[in-house]
Amino acid sequence: NKFNKEMRNAYWEILLLPNLNEQQKRAFIRSLYDDPSQSANLLAEAKKLNDAQA
């Protein structure tokens, strides 16, 4: 399933972002589970926040 693969990839990438705190990571991951079809958008948002907090 395409969404499962995308979601899994986004999950691990979000977990490994160094500048997000645990609460932020949990919020993004919760959103991933709520709507896996938004994986790419959520990952992009997480990366943007990660860069902003660098």
Rank of each mutant, 00 (worst) to 15 (best):
N1Y: 00
N1D: 14
N1V: 04
N1L: 03
N1A: 02
N1G: 11
N1P: 11
N1H: 04
N1K: 05
K2L: 07
K2V: 05
K2Y: 04
K2A: 11
K2I: 14
K2F: 12
K2H: 13
K2P: 04
K2G: 14
K2N: 13
F3T: 11
F3Y: 08
F3I: 14
F3V: 09
F3G: 08
F3W: 09
F3L: 12
F3Q: 13
F3D: 14
F3N: 12
N4P: 15
N4H: 12
N4M: 04
N4A: 03
N4W: 15
N4G: 09
N4K: 03
N4F: 10
N4Q: 06
N4V: 03
K5D: 04
K5W: 03
K5G: 03
K5H: 03
K5S: 01
K5A: 03
K5Y: 03
K5T: 01
K5L: 01
E6P: 03
E6W: 01
E6S: 02
E6L: 06
E6A: 04
E6I: 05
E6Y: 03
E6G: 01
M7Y: 04
M7N: 01
M7G: 01
M7V: 08
M7R: 01
M7S: 04
R8D: 04
R8P: 01
R8I: 09
R8N: 04
R8A: 10
R8S: 06
R8W: 15
R8H: 05
R8T: 06
R8M: 14
N9R: 15
N9F: 14
N9M: 14
N9G: 05
N9K: 15
N9Q: 15
N9Y: 15
N9S: 12
N9V: 14
N9D: 08
N9H: 14
N9E: 11
A10V: 08
A10Y: 02
A10K: 03
A10S: 05
A10L: 05
A10P: 00
A10W: 03
A10R: 03
A10Q: 02
A10M: 03
Y11I: 13
Y11Q: 05
Y11F: 08
Y11G: 02
Y11E: 14
Y11R: 14
Y11V: 13
Y11H: 06
Y11T: 06
W12Q: 05
W12H: 14
W12K: 15
W12A: 07
W12T: 06
W12E: 08
W12I: 04
W12Y: 09
E13L: 15
E13Q: 15
E13F: 15
E13S: 15
E13T: 15
E13K: 15
E13R: 15
E13A: 15
I14Y: 00
I14W: 00
I14N: 00
I14V: 06
I14F: 03
I14S: 00
I14T: 02
I14M: 10
I14E: 00
I14A: 01
I14K: 00
L15Q: 09
L15I: 08
L15V: 12
L15A: 04
L15S: 07
L15E: 02
L16K: 15
L16H: 15
L16R: 15
L16E: 05
L16M: 12
L16A: 13
L16S: 11
L16D: 05
L17T: 03
L17N: 02
L17W: 03
L17P: 00
L17F: 08
L17M: 08
L17R: 02
L17I: 02
L17D: 01
P18Q: 07
P18L: 08
P18I: 07
P18D: 06
P18F: 06
P18H: 09
P18G: 08
P18R: 15
P18A: 08
P18M: 08
P18K: 13
P18Y: 07
N19L: 08
N19K: 08
N19R: 13
N19T: 07
N19S: 07
N19E: 07
N19A: 06
N19F: 09
N19V: 06
N19P: 00
L20H: 00
L20Q: 00
L20D: 00
L20I: 08
L20T: 01
L20E: 00
L20G: 00
L20K: 00
L20A: 01
L20N: 00
N21K: 07
N21T: 09
N21Y: 15
N21I: 13
N21V: 08
N21G: 11
N21L: 08
N21E: 12
N21R: 08
N21A: 11
N21F: 15
N21P: 05
E22I: 08
E22T: 13
E22H: 12
E22F: 14
E22N: 10
E22Y: 14
Q23N: 07
Q23P: 10
Q23K: 10
Q23A: 13
Q23S: 10
Q23T: 10
Q23H: 09
Q23G: 09
Q23R: 08
Q24R: 06
Q24F: 07
Q24L: 07
Q24V: 09
Q24T: 05
Q24S: 06
Q24H: 06
Q24D: 06
Q24W: 11
Q24K: 03
Q24M: 07
K25V: 07
K25M: 06
K25F: 06
K25Q: 04
K25E: 01
K25N: 01
K25P: 00
K25I: 07
K25Y: 04
K25A: 04
K25R: 14
K25S: 03
R26N: 03
R26T: 04
R26V: 06
R26I: 05
R26P: 00
A27I: 08
A27M: 14
A27V: 12
A27R: 10
A27F: 15
A27E: 02
A27Q: 09
A27N: 11
A27D: 03
F28S: 02
F28V: 02
F28A: 03
F28L: 05
F28E: 00
F28N: 00
F28R: 01
F28D: 00
I29E: 01
I29L: 06
I29P: 00
I29V: 09
I29F: 14
I29A: 05
I29Y: 09
R30T: 04
R30E: 02
R30Y: 13
R30A: 04
R30D: 02
R30P: 00
R30Q: 03
R30M: 04
S31R: 14
S31F: 10
S31G: 08
S31L: 08
S31T: 07
S31P: 03
S31H: 09
S31E: 07
S31A: 06
S31V: 08
S31M: 08
S31Q: 09
S31K: 11
L32D: 00
L32K: 00
L32F: 02
L32T: 01
L32V: 05
L32E: 00
L32M: 04
L32Y: 01
Y33D: 01
Y33G: 02
Y33A: 02
Y33T: 04
Y33P: 01
Y33F: 13
Y33Q: 02
Y33V: 05
Y33E: 02
Y33R: 05
Y33K: 03
Y33N: 02
Y33H: 04
Y33M: 11
Y33W: 08
D34K: 14
D34A: 13
D34H: 13
D34E: 11
D34T: 08
D35V: 11
D35W: 09
D35G: 11
D35Q: 15
D35S: 12
D35Y: 10
D35R: 14
D35P: 01
D35H: 08
P36L: 03
P36R: 06
P36F: 06
P36V: 04
P36K: 05
P36D: 02
P36W: 04
P36Y: 04
S37N: 07
S37K: 12
S37P: 04
S37F: 09
S37L: 08
S37V: 06
Q38D: 08
Q38L: 11
Q38K: 13
Q38N: 07
Q38W: 09
Q38F: 10
Q38A: 10
Q38G: 07
Q38P: 02
S39Q: 04
S39I: 06
S39G: 05
S39K: 10
S39M: 14
S39L: 13
S39P: 10
S39E: 01
S39T: 08
A40I: 08
A40K: 12
A40Q: 09
A40T: 05
A40F: 14
A40G: 06
A40N: 08
A40W: 15
A40R: 08
N41H: 11
N41R: 11
N41D: 07
N41V: 09
N41M: 12
N41I: 13
N41T: 13
N41W: 14
L42T: 13
L42D: 01
L42F: 11
L42G: 02
L42I: 11
L42Q: 04
L42M: 08
L42P: 02
L42H: 12
L42S: 04
L42W: 13
L42E: 02
L43W: 05
L43I: 05
L43D: 00
L43G: 04
L43E: 03
L43M: 07
L43A: 10
A44E: 06
A44P: 02
A44Q: 09
A44F: 15
A44I: 10
A44M: 12
A44S: 11
E45F: 14
E45D: 11
E45K: 14
E45W: 15
E45V: 13
E45S: 12
E45G: 11
A46K: 00
A46G: 03
A46N: 00
A46S: 08
A46M: 01
A46V: 03
A46L: 02
A46F: 01
A46D: 00
A46E: 00
K47N: 06
K47Y: 12
K47P: 00
K47A: 05
K47G: 03
K47W: 09
K47F: 13
K47V: 10
K47L: 06
K47M: 05
K47Q: 07
K48M: 11
K48P: 00
K48E: 08
K48V: 12
K48R: 09
K48Q: 12
K48Y: 10
K48D: 07
K48I: 09
K48A: 07
L49G: 02
L49I: 09
L49V: 07
L49F: 08
L49H: 09
L49M: 10
L49W: 12
L49A: 14
N50L: 01
N50Y: 02
N50K: 01
N50D: 08
N50A: 09
N50Q: 05
N50E: 04
N50W: 01
N50T: 02
N50P: 01
N50R: 02
N50H: 06
D51L: 15
D51R: 15
D51G: 14
D51I: 12
D51P: 02
D51E: 15
D51W: 15
A52D: 12
A52G: 09
A52R: 11
A52L: 08
A52V: 08
A52N: 06
A52P: 06
A52W: 12
Q53G: 11
Q53A: 08
Q53R: 02
Q53H: 12
Q53S: 09
Q53W: 14
A54H: 11
A54L: 06
A54G: 11
A54Y: 11
A54T: 11
A54Q: 10
A54E: 11
A54R: 02
A54F: 11
